[in-house]
Simulated scan of single mutants.
Amino acid sequence: MQSPHSTDGTIINGLSVDVEDWFQVGAFENVIDRGDWDGLALRVEDNVLRILDLFDAAEVKATFFTLGWIAKRNPAIIRRIVDRGHELASHGYDHGRVFAFDRKQFAGDIKLARMILEDAGGVQVTGYRAPSFSIDKRTPWAYMELAEQGYAYSSSVAPVVHDHYGWREAPRFAFKPLPWSDLVEIPVTTAILGGRRVAAGGGGFFRVLPYAFSRWAIRQVNRQDCRPAVFYFHPWEIDPEQPRVGNAPIKSKLRHYTNLDKMAEKLRELVHEFEWGRMDILAHREAARAVELAA
């Protein structure tokens, strides 16, 4: 069996970046119109360059789940990601949530995004992450479409309860959603606290909560569950100088802007403390593990 461990027995966790700009987030989807995006300041390129430098300093590789919309307008940064040895994967075209599509619309979205990403990066795209972890029990056709389009893995499920997303009944760790396909789903990390699942895979939870919480959660997953963690964040989260959306709801502002000035340093600590790798490598190992468990 292909183990999630390195040759010395250390578990290799999955490190990922959801590449979208400050105005494309779910928190602002009801106050910033998609039709206005092209008139807003693009900050994603500079932020991705900072992240690439941070990863280089820690000697880690990651997966960049990137919007086709971003790749179409910033092909140079896509080439930088690939040239530095990271995986290029799909985050859909323009951050549309999967449960807002029907199957035909979803098929068109992931096909368009993949075409743009592969053209910009010059590499095959085999991984997908749904915007806002929006694959759930409402979208049984999503995995069928991903498999039919040749994707090897998805990391599109948050197996928790959340007001923006969540599939509480989903497994906590990698699973095969289709009996006839090798496609593997790798959910974002959760930990068990007081007998309940809690989100512990990055994003706003990592930025807002003390670093000690993430350290505890990843250690729980690695040591008690003996499984790799899956961590994600966004380029805008290391950008405290980004424009403010004045007409956004207070709750959205708190989620989006809290601790932006502390995020980069927390990331440096995280990437140096644990072992990290690309999601495609993790997916390959998890698929092999699933085959052995089924044998």
Rank of each mutant, 00 (worst) to 15 (best):
I51M: 05
A58H: 13
W69F: 13
L49I: 08
D46W: 07
F65G: 08
R34I: 11
K61T: 05
A76H: 14
K61G: 09
I51V: 10
A76N: 14
A76Y: 09
A71D: 12
A62D: 00
A62Y: 03
E45P: 00
L67A: 14
E59N: 15
E45N: 10
L40F: 04
D38L: 14
F65L: 02
N47I: 04
V44R: 04
L67E: 15
A76D: 15
K61I: 05
G39L: 11
F64K: 03
T63S: 00
E45D: 14
R73I: 15
L54Y: 12
N74D: 13
A57C: 08
A76T: 11
D53L: 03
L40W: 03
A76M: 12
D33R: 11
T63H: 01
R50K: 10
F64L: 06
F64S: 04
L40A: 09
A76I: 09
V44E: 01
L40V: 09
D53V: 08
N47Y: 00
D56G: 09
T66Y: 04
W37Y: 15
I51N: 06
R50A: 01
W69N: 02
V60W: 03
A76C: 11
L49D: 03
N74T: 11
I51Y: 03
F55Q: 06
A76G: 12
A41P: 11
A71Q: 10
V44S: 06
D56K: 14
L67F: 12
G68N: 04
L52C: 01
V48C: 00
G35S: 04
R43S: 04
L49H: 05
R50M: 07
W69Y: 15
A57V: 11
A71E: 10
A62R: 05
L49Q: 12
R73S: 14
G35F: 09
I70K: 03
D36E: 07
D53S: 12
T63M: 01
T66K: 03
A58I: 11
E59V: 12
I51T: 08
R50S: 08
